[in-house]
Computed example of a mutant assay.
Amino acid sequence: MTDDEVVEALRTVARAETLPPPAVPEAVAAAEEAIGFPLPPLLRRLYVEVANGGFGPNEGILGVSGGAAQGNFADITELYQDGPDPSGRIPAGLVLIYEWGCTIWSLVDFRDLAGAMWVNHEGECWPQGVNLAEWLTSTLAGTVTVETLLESQPTS
């Protein structure tokens, strides 16, 4: 799917569900400044044009300030600034956006314009082999699960 198709698919979901309103551009800019990397263009569009988080799997991804929270996590900036990985195993620029439970997180690589997706589980971090558009499309189709994330972990 193209970025435009992903945006439109999530707009359709947003019309059918109660999602937060879109983020104000200032909140997105503040997140980029705090994180130290620009948001991948698709994620920026989704936050500003569709909803400030809340879309994606189950209760949806975290937003930027003022958007969708997940559990005790208010937004991607707060989580990034709090240092989610004191072991240092999560490289700078990988931003946690969705917690699956059982210490399994999906992360977006802000260093990559396509937003390569990563997985973090119990301190181990590895690329998932898909970009943000593919990940969102798969979550809408229900084909990304905890099991598929763990299956993507490279064997030693």
Rank of each mutant, 00 (worst) to 15 (best):
I61S: 10
E17P: 00
Q81A: 15
L136I: 08
D4W: 03
Y80Q: 02
L42K: 02
I35V: 14
V13G: 07
E8G: 05
R45K: 09
E124P: 06
S138K: 00
A74F: 11
T145F: 13
R45E: 08
Y47N: 10
V108I: 15
L79P: 01
G63E: 05
L94V: 09
G53L: 02
G129Y: 11
E26T: 05
A114K: 08
Q153N: 08
E151C: 08
A74K: 09
A16K: 04
M117K: 03
P25V: 00
M1G: 12
P40H: 04
T139A: 10
I76T: 05
I76Q: 04
P25S: 09
E49K: 01
A14E: 07
A14L: 04
W118L: 06
T145A: 09
L94E: 13
V144H: 12
T12R: 15
C102N: 15
T145I: 12
V48I: 11
C125M: 07
E49F: 02
G60M: 03
G66M: 07
V28T: 01
V13K: 06
P91E: 10
T145M: 08
G54D: 09
A114Y: 05
I97M: 13
D112K: 02
R111E: 02
G83C: 13
T137W: 11
E147H: 11
I35R: 04
T139P: 06
G36K: 02
E122L: 13
V95S: 08
F37V: 00
W100A: 15
E99N: 13
N72S: 13
G67C: 02
A69I: 05
W100M: 12
G88M: 12
A116P: 07
V108A: 06
A114D: 10
G129S: 06
P22C: 06
A133T: 09
A74P: 11
R44M: 03
I76A: 04
S156L: 09
T143P: 08
G123F: 10
V28N: 01
P86R: 00
L107H: 04
L113H: 02
P41R: 01
D109W: 08
I61W: 10
L43Q: 07
D82H: 08
N120E: 14
G56T: 04
A23R: 01
W105I: 00
P41W: 04
G101D: 14
W105N: 14
P91K: 03
A133W: 07
P57W: 13
W126N: 07
V146P: 11
E33Q: 15
V146N: 11
V24H: 15
L46E: 06
V13E: 15
E147Q: 15
T137Y: 12
L113P: 03
D4N: 06
T77H: 05
G93M: 08
A116D: 12
A92T: 07
G53H: 02
A30Q: 14
I61E: 13
A51K: 00
D3I: 01
D4G: 04
E17S: 08
G115E: 05
S87H: 06
W135K: 07
A14S: 05
A69E: 11
I61M: 15
A30D: 13
V108F: 03
P22T: 06
